[in-house]
């Protein structure tokens, strides 16, 4: 077994769950509360030196009993070693985990994609909004196992929504608040901005 697993367990104790190997890759389960500390330790401890975040994603199993896993691929560029960290979450409960963007800027879009596709909320992410689907997408989270392959809505409903989309919705609220177009916004959008729905109000308000 990879010595990193034992070192992790010695440092974080019970927060480190089982460690296993699959096809030669080392996998360590970490409790959600300890994730940020463990990642910081893995990055900043010289003997570990996992300074490169390869990927962030999530896995939901077909088996309804199994928990949803958020998966982090780490790499130590100097030691040429890989490590896979997993955090288990209840797919029907609270899908929240700490964001690792403070450690790696590269996690920004990866976490956004995981949020977009699985509905996992990353606490502390600077700009957590949908990335591949559009902002007003209402059918849920496409890569969840209870999401049908062709989407939740009927084709007719999908077409109806696409045709009825508000052209202003092509800009995010944040961008609209930058533009002079703010003064010409419809009243309901101004109202949404006023509620602080993304972005700041212009100083004139």
């Amino acid at each position: 077994m990879n010595p990193t697993v034992d070192a992790l367990r010695a440092t974080f104790g019970n927060a480190i769950g089982r460690g296993l190997e699959s096809c030669g890759d080392t996998i360590v389960y970490v409790a959600r509360e300890a994730l940020l500390d463990a990642m910081t330790w893995l990055r900043d401890t010289p003997e570990q030196g996992y300074d490169y975040l390869v990927d962030v994603t999530a896995v939901e199993y077909r088996d309804r009993e199994r928990l949803l896993e958020v998966v982090y691929q780490l790499r130590s560029l100097a030691r040429r070693a890989d490590l896979r960290i997993k955090v288990e979450l209840d797919p029907h409960g609270d899908l929240t985990v700490d964001s690792v963007v403070p450690l790696w800027r590269g996690a920004d879009w990866l976490e956004r994609e995981t949020y977009d596709m699985f509905g996992v909320t990353f606490r502390g992410h600077p700009d957590l909004r949908r990335i591949l689907m559009w902002e007003t997408y209402a059918e849920g989270y496409p890569l969840r196992k209870d999401f049908p392959l062709r989407g939740r809505f009927s084709r007719a409903e999908q077409v109806r929504q696409a045709l009825g989309a508000n052209p202003e919705a092509h800009y995010s609220m944040e961008e609209l608040s930058i533009a002079e177009a703010y003064d010409e916004l419809p009243a309901d959008m101004k109202e949404r901005l006023r509620h602080g729905e993304r972005g700041k109000l212009p100083d004139t308000e």
Binding site: T57, V59, W109
Partner: peptide, 13 residues
């Protein structure tokens, strides 16, 4: 169960 592509140009972008 899951096929994940780590997309290099997505992350570079």
């Amino acid at each position: 169960v899951r096929w994940r592509i780590r997309p290099p140009s997505f992350i570079n972008l």
